[in-house]
Nucleic acid binder design. Sequence first.
DNA 1: ACCTGAACACCGTTCAAGT
DNA 2: ACCTGAACACCGTTCAAGT
Lengths: 239, 239
Amino acid sequence: MTVQPEPVPDQRIPLSADRVHRAAIELADAEGIAALTMRSVAGALGVEAMSLYYHVANKEALLDGVVDTLLHEIEAELGGFQVVKGETDWRTALRNTILVARTVMLRHPWAPTIIDTRTTMTFTLIRYFDSLLGIMIEGGFTNDLGHHAMHVLGSRGLGFNKELFEPDDPQAADDETDAMLADLAPQLPYLVAMLADVAHDPTEDKLGWCDDQSEFEFALDLILDGLETRRISTTSAQH
Amino acid sequence: MTVQPEPVPDQRIPLSADRVHRAAIELADAEGIAALTMRSVAGALGVEAMSLYYHVANKEALLDGVVDTLLHEIEAELGGFQVVKGETDWRTALRNTILVARTVMLRHPWAPTIIDTRTTMTFTLIRYFDSLLGIMIEGGFTNDLGHHAMHVLGSRGLGFNKELFEPDDPQAADDETDAMLADLAPQLPYLVAMLADVAHDPTEDKLGWCDDQSEFEFALDLILDGLETRRISTTSAQH
DNA sequence: ACCTGAACACCGTTCAAGT
DNA sequence: ACCTGAACACCGTTCAAGT
C-alpha cells in the first residue's frame, strides 16, 4: 500500500450530477430546505449557478436527483430492497422496511417537504415501491388489494406522515395555540378538553409537529390491521 | 319592492379581504393554482398588485384566507359543523361529514395543494376539526384515541388524499409509465403485474391521479374500521 | 467538454407619494 | 382611508461566449 496524497481541494474535483445532489442534501441538512437555491448549491460547490445546468436540467431535476439519492440511502440501510419469495409474514417484513425508511427520513427532516412536490418518480423510487408491493403479494394480497394498500399507505410507505398545517416554529405555535384556545374554549370544547388531556412530548424524535415515533407506529399498525382483515376476506372469498 | 339598479361595475365596489379571497378562488378555479400571483389576483379585480396589501398582510395571509373561505363553503354545505350530543353512531356521522367536505374539494381541485403548504390554522378550520373530534368523543372515544384519530386521518379528514408524485399531466404520465414499465418489467415484476391487472378509470371525478371516490372511500373505511376496533378495546379495558 | 458573465422574465414586497 | 408608481431583492433560467 502506498500513502495516499492529501485529498485535493473541492475546487479540483470535477462536478457531476451526483456531486450536485450530495451538495444539495448537505446544504438542506445544514441550513434547511428554504436555503436551497441554485445559487446556494453552486456556492457550496465553489462554482457559479449556471455551471449546475451542465449537469442537471433544472431545479426540478436536481430535486428529483436528491430524492433518488435518499432512496439509495434507504436501499443501503436495508441491504437492498428485498422481497423474499414465499415469505408469508408480509406484516413484519413490510413494517420493518418502512421503519428503516423512516430512520433515513429522520436524518433529513426536510425530505418530506420536497417529496411532496415531486411530480415524477425516479427509477430507484419505483423499485422501492415494487418491493413494498412484492412483500404484500408474496403475503397473499390480490393485485387489487395491493393497489389499494399503496394508496392507503401513501407517504407512510416512505416512513413519514406529512402533517397538515405544520407550523414553522412548533414551540411558538404551541404557545400561540394555548393562548388562542384559552379564549375560545367555549367554541372549541372538544379540542380544548383533548389538549388538556394529551401532552406532546417535545423531546422525542419527530418529523413534524406530531409525527413522532409512537404516533407514526399507531397509524401504521392501524393500517396494517385493516389490510390484513381485507386480505383474509378476499382470500377466503375465492374459495 | 323597488327595482334595483344595475349592479355597479366591479371597479366601483370597494376592495375587501373577502373580495380578494373570492377573486383568488375564482382565478384558481379558472386558470389553476400556478396562475395565482399577487399581480394576477389584482388584475382580476381591476387594481394594482400593491393595493392588495392594504387588505391582506401578504401572500401567505391571502392563501390562509382562501382556505378559510373554503371551510365556510363546507360549513354551508353541512348546514353548520354539527356535533349531536349523545349521538353514538360516530361512524356514520364522521363519514358523512368528511364526504361532504370532499364534494367541496372536488369543486376546487387545487385546494389540496395550497392546504398542504399552510402553516397556520384559521379559526374556521379549527372549529371544523373540533367538530370531527366532537363526533368521535360523543361516540365513546377517549381523548387519547381521538388525538390519534386526527393524525391517522390527516388530510382525509378534509376529504382528500394528497398523492405522492402527482403527475402534472396524468395522461402523459400514464403513457410514459407504460413505456417505462415495458422496458423494465424484469426489475419491477410486482408493479408490472399489478398495473396489468388493475385499470385506472379516467372518467371518474378525482382529486389526483388515483384519488378517485372509490379509492378514497376504501381508505376512509379501513381507517374507520381500525378506530372502531380500538375504541371498543379502550372502552372495555376501563371496566 | 466544461464553466461563466451578463441579462431576462417574473416573483413578492417596501416605501413614499398620491387622492 | 384607500390605492398607486417606482424600485428593490431574489428567484430560475437563456444564451452567447470563454477556456
